[in-house]
Every structure is written in structure tokens, then in C-alpha cells.
Simulated scan of single mutants.
Amino acid sequence: MQIIEKFIESKYGNNALCEDGLFINEKFIAVMDGVTAKGKILWNNKTSGFHAKEILMDAMEDFNGDENAFQVLKYLNMQLHKQYHGNDEYFIKNTAERLRSTIVIYSQMHKQIWSFGDCQFSINGQAAKKEMEIDLLLAEVRSAYLHSELISGKSVEELCLSDPSQEVIFPFIKNQLYFSNCDKGGKYEFSVLDGFCNEFSKAIICDVKKGDTVILASDGYPRLESSLAESELFIKELKEKDPLCIDYYKAVSGFTNKKSSIDDRTYIKFVV
């Protein structure tokens, strides 16, 4: 594997708070995106997203390299489950308190990319990103609400300093957790490692071959371009055009509340 470029950055500009992880060894390259906490529990004084990332980073060291996608995902999920220390009943009832992460992995042995959740990747410039239907819906709701605030007389700058839409959509964001790994969720169902997932058939598995150029990234990049500079430029232009992220690119959050980007972001480009 020849690494061309790599980058990781917190949405607050402080990587001590970054819930993304970038793992590299001779067997695997992986990008993991710890899900922003919806509950109140701290894990070793860290958010659930940060702790989930740390657990998965450590667990990736345990593999021989010949494991298949389902063996890897099952093991990673099991490591998250161990953090509950037998309190399954509590975490089944209190879904917001679970550790959660999405992940995209490249396996050197199998020459495959494995994606579980909404992390993204590209192969020779062909990007793949699994949009969550619930996020698309909430992005529209948020857009409508903030547009109403603008019409009422508030400024973009005022709304960027303190985004009132988060209080409006938070109950939906919290309840959407019931759709995770749930066949009853219909089009709103989504995949995530959370310690309770027992079905990995919805993982995306793509073969690659020697000489292919691969990019793995978290969903902090609204658009995955063919280079880090271009991907970062899109973010810069988006911040100038649509800092609230309600027009040009609709999202469940924007460049608000002192964030330098919509979300934590991780990018790695390499040649197989």
C-alpha cells in the first residue's frame, strides 16, 4: 500500500475532541466515525463517540489480517459490547447511551473495501456514499425552520453563533436511534456498530485490484473529491456560500456554534 495523503481534523479544531479515527498497519487501513453522543454518560471522561473510536482503534490491532469482513465487523461490535459490562438491559432500554461508530476498512489480504454505515470511499474516482434517509429528512426540516427564522428577521450570522434548529430536531435525532440495525425501520433503517448489532449482511463489500487508487473518508466531507485539497476546498466554499447548510448543501448541522466544519473529518488516499 502506497499512502498518497492523509488528514484528520476535529470539527472544533481541537483533535483532542475528535471522534474520528484513522488506523493504518500492514494489514488494514480503516476510518472510523464515532457517532456524536445523544446521551449523558461519559466514558473515562470522554464522549461515547470518542470512546467508541478508541475501542475500535485498539481492536483493529488484534487481527491477523486474513479475517473476512463479517469476522472483523462481528469482533469490533463485540468489543463495544464488552464496554457495557453485562448491563444489557439498561443499554437496550436507553439506546441513546450506547457506544456507536460507523467504519470503512480496506483489507490488504482480501483486496476489498468493507463499509458499514455512512463512512464513504472511492475507487479510481468513483465515489460511494450511503446517505441515511432519516438525515435527509431532518436536513429538510432544519432547512425549513432556519429559513423561517431568517424571514422573521434573524441574520445568518446570528443563527451561526447559536443554532436554534438543534433544539427543534434533537428529539427526532434521539429517536432515530431506534432505526439503527432495525429491519422494522423501513427506509429509515441504518447500519452502525453499537455492541448490539447481530446482522452484518448490509455491509458494502467492494473488490479492488493492485494499482487501484482508493480513498477512505468519514462523512465529515460533504463531497469526496479526488484529492484532499479539492475536498477541503469544497468545505471552504460551502462555508462561504451556505454557512448554515440549508440551501446549497442541506445537512443536520452547519458551520455553527463555533465549529470550523460540519463534522469531524478524516481522509486517506492510497494506491493498492
Rank of each mutant, 00 (worst) to 15 (best):
D194Y: 04
L137K: 11
L17N: 14
A59K: 03
K130D: 12
R142A: 05
Q71V: 10
N25R: 10
K40M: 03
K93E: 14
K27C: 07
E97D: 14
E67K: 01
P164K: 01
G186V: 03
D212G: 13
F63S: 04
D263K: 09
F200N: 15
Y188C: 05
A59V: 00
K209W: 01
I4M: 01
L161R: 14
E9A: 14
K6R: 14
A52S: 10
I113A: 09
F121C: 13
D118I: 07
V156M: 02
K236W: 01
Y249N: 05
I24T: 07
D242L: 04
T47K: 09
L76D: 12
L224W: 00
W43L: 10
S143M: 02
K187S: 13
I235E: 07
G117P: 15
L146Q: 10
N77P: 14
C197W: 12
L193E: 11
E232A: 06
I8P: 06
S162T: 04
E157S: 00
K202I: 05
F70G: 00
N68K: 03
K239L: 02
A127G: 04
F196V: 10
G195Y: 06
I41H: 05
K259Q: 15
F121I: 09
W43H: 08
Q79S: 11
L193A: 05
I215P: 08
I173S: 07
S261W: 07
R223I: 00
K210Y: 07
L76W: 07
D118C: 12
N175Y: 02
L233S: 13
R98E: 06
F116E: 15
L244T: 11
D135H: 06
G86D: 03
L150C: 09
F50L: 05
V31I: 15
F234G: 02
M57P: 11
N198T: 15
V35M: 06
K6E: 15
K250R: 13
A59T: 05
G125T: 06
R98V: 05
K184D: 15
T266L: 14
Y249D: 10
Q2A: 01
E140C: 07
E232F: 02
A96C: 06
F196N: 11
Y188S: 11
P222N: 05
P171W: 00
F179C: 15
V31N: 14
L216Y: 02
D135F: 13
W43T: 08
D118W: 13
L238I: 02
N68P: 10
L73N: 13
Y221P: 05
